[in-house]
Structures are given as structure tokens and as C-alpha cells.
Amino acid sequence: MQKQLSHPDLSGLLELDSLNSRGLRPFTAADKVTLGRVKPQDRPKETRLPHIVTDNCQRCRFTDCVGHCPVECFHSDDERLYIDPDVCIDCGACIPACPVQAIYEVIDMPDGYLPWIEINAERSRMLPLIIAKQDPLPTAEARRKELDF
């Protein structure tokens, strides 16, 4: 992990044993609880078609997707969200939840979006998890207009 990032690496929290006896609490806006996290080693080995958050999330961060995610694979920085491809189960519930169509299954992504696969994988690993819908960024409505949604 790169040390200059302001957010701590939370990978140490992923083990069940490291949680307190009531690991699901508290639930706050800045929640870093990782109880729901699916550990990569629990996943079946099969062909993956990861989902990615792309450009349109920037300056929006509506986070409706987070409320629809059954396994908690979204991570956030100050501007946007990222999907952890090792946790995402490829169910696609987040795609229709996004008001600005920022999320794609890799097989359906527009041309030129290839770099987003690596960006999601890299960034999600070093940023905190978010597990519930939050208020959109103050710039979200302006950005939505700009994107014509």
C-alpha cells in the first residue's frame, strides 16, 4: 500500500476475529465496519466479469449503489466510489441503482474504459469501505445536469 494516502489500509480488519463481540455496530456515516466483507478465499474460482465504477461517479457520489449491494464491495474517497473486484459477486444490482449510469459490467463497458478496471482494483484496496447510502456530494446535482441524466 502507498503510504502517502490519508486513508489507512483496512485489510487487517477483514478477519472475523479482529471484530469486537458485536461487530455490526456502530453504524455511522464514516463507517469502517467490515463485517459483511466476503473474503476473497471464500469465493468460488470461476471466470470473473467484474463490475466497475467509471467516470460519471466523479463529483456525484450518489451512493445509491451502496444500498443495493448485497455484499459490501464499495469503497470511497472524497470524490467517487470504487468496486473491490475480489468482493463483488457480479450480481449487477448496482447498475440500475446509479442515477448517472456510472457502473458497468466489464463486458458491456464503452470503448476506452479499460483503465477503470485497474483503477477500481487498486483504489478499492486502499480506501475505506462504505456500507450504506450517504448524502451525495454537494456538486452532484450540477454534475448530473452536466451529464444530462
Binding site: G36, V38, K39, D42, R43, P44, E46, P70, V71, E72, I89, D90, C91
Partner: peptide
């Protein structure tokens, strides 16, 4: 669709 059964872990 074993992936879609992963929510069981959650």
C-alpha cells in the same frame, strides 16, 4: 451461480 450464493457469508 455460486457467486450469487456468496451473500450467505454476509
Amino acid at each position: 451461480h455460486p457467486n450469487l450464493k456468496q451473500p450467505m457469508i454476509v
